[in-house]
Nucleic acid binder design. Structure first.
Lengths: 220, 220
DNA sequence: ACAAAAGTGTTTTTGTTACACCCATGT
DNA sequence: ACATGGGTGTAACAAAAACACTTTTGT
């Protein structure tokens, strides 16, 4: 038996990193913080002594970006001792989803350290953060198939076309309109508000809302 | 902004817990360690300063149970500050699979602190370990549907009936023999060895092997 | 009248489920 | 000869995919 010393507590740090997704203009974007000239990082940081992991992730997101009230889910824990030089940093990675409409846009624009970047064209990221984003994107895409997670990107009321665009943006492929609508309505997760969206030179669209907003349901 | 102190390193401990599954006599069992009279726990323990998380999980499994060379996968990280009294213990939970044939049975029998318990009838477990077992079982069961993970329970060569029994044991339901064989063979993950299993008063069964042992493949 | 997106059903294809008998062996 | 599990195909059904035209609005 090989005996190993436990982590020297003075060297062990526990942190969280959050991949916050949002969709802007048919692009799937991630919120990044500028760390240096051409170096970006995910929001996150150390876990407080008396807070749980989810709480730490949400707190850093709020403190660093002003974004609050998101859907949050644990992704994976990264603990390679060589992740970070000189110190042992174990990171519990999360991903989070927020509708573009709920973002504090003014606050974000004032802060040049914070920016949205398209997942398909990320700038250089620190450490293993690019890997974390990729993993989060995969997880998100596969959850579309068997859950109602996409509703987390939607505002209080929305059109079916807008929801379809969300799916297409995340999956990176176009979907058949009629099959999509059949599928979504069969899920029984949305209902009509009665209202109509009048915008543009075309027929107004019915508005829908989530029947259980905030609740993610799994299919079959 | 609420400011919270980072974890006092003297109080933060990082550990791993492992749910090791194996199948014995059509029962899905978990390996447990006796902690006290009527109190059991999962194998696991602190993460070494220079080892990665997977390594720590495997090492504790080896040191505490003698079991080596298993399939291992990270499950979830539990970090509720009230998990453990008096100290902050964050635990990275894993689950592991091993064929009954690969177990050091003599070594295990000699150690009265170690025992296999059926998942469906667990003794009282310490902390949140029962929750961890349940989560691991769910994850395992759902992976059957879209991966070749069940092969990790099989010895070098095996019959299709034996593989079907593994599926049935994990899922807790009986499967149709013909449909099962069609599905498995369509996965293209096993091939005939040419050998036959002669056992019992009945027709011998064809033996198969995994085409890529150790490799888990995903379907579609 | 035209441009632009909303809305709507049916057919085809594919995959899933249900189901029953003969075969090879040991006793 | 019989008991035991091994091995095999097809028909019914359900789910997914392919597919095109009409409607409503603003300009």
């Amino acid at each position: 038996m090989k005996i190993m010393a436990p982590v020297d507590p003075a060297l062990l740090a526990l942190s969280t990193d959050v991949v916050l997704f949002s969709i802007h203009a048919e692009r799937l974007d991630v919120l990044l913080l500028k760390q240096a000239a051409r170096q970006w990082q995910l929001p996150g940081g150390e876990v407080g002594a008396c807070e749980d992991l989810d709480g730490a992730a949400l707190r850093h997101l709020r403190e660093q970006t002003g974004v609050d009230d998101v859907y949050l889910e644990q992704l994976y824990t990264f603990g390679d001792p060589r992740r970070v030089d000189c110190q042992r940093v174990v990171s519990v990675a999360y991903y989070a989803l927020v509708p573009a409409e709920r973002l504090p846009l003014d606050e974000l624009r004032k802060n040049p350290q914070v920016d949205w970047c398209p997942v398909s064209d990320l700038p250089p990221l620190t450490l293993d953060h690019a890997q974390i984003v990729t993993l989060a994107h995969q997880r998100l895409a596969s959850k579309l198939a068997y859950s109602t997670i996409a509703l987390q990107f939607m505002p209080a009321s929305f059109t079916l076309s807008a929801l379809q665009t969300v799916y297409e943006t995340i999956l990176g492929e176009v979907l058949d309109k009629r099959n999509f609508r059949k599928r979504i309505l069969a899920m029984n997760c949305i209902e009509t508000t009665g209202g109509m969206a009048r915008e543009g030179n075309h027929r107004p669209a019915r508005l829908y809302r989530a029947t259980h907003p905030g609740r993610i349901e799994f299919l079959k």
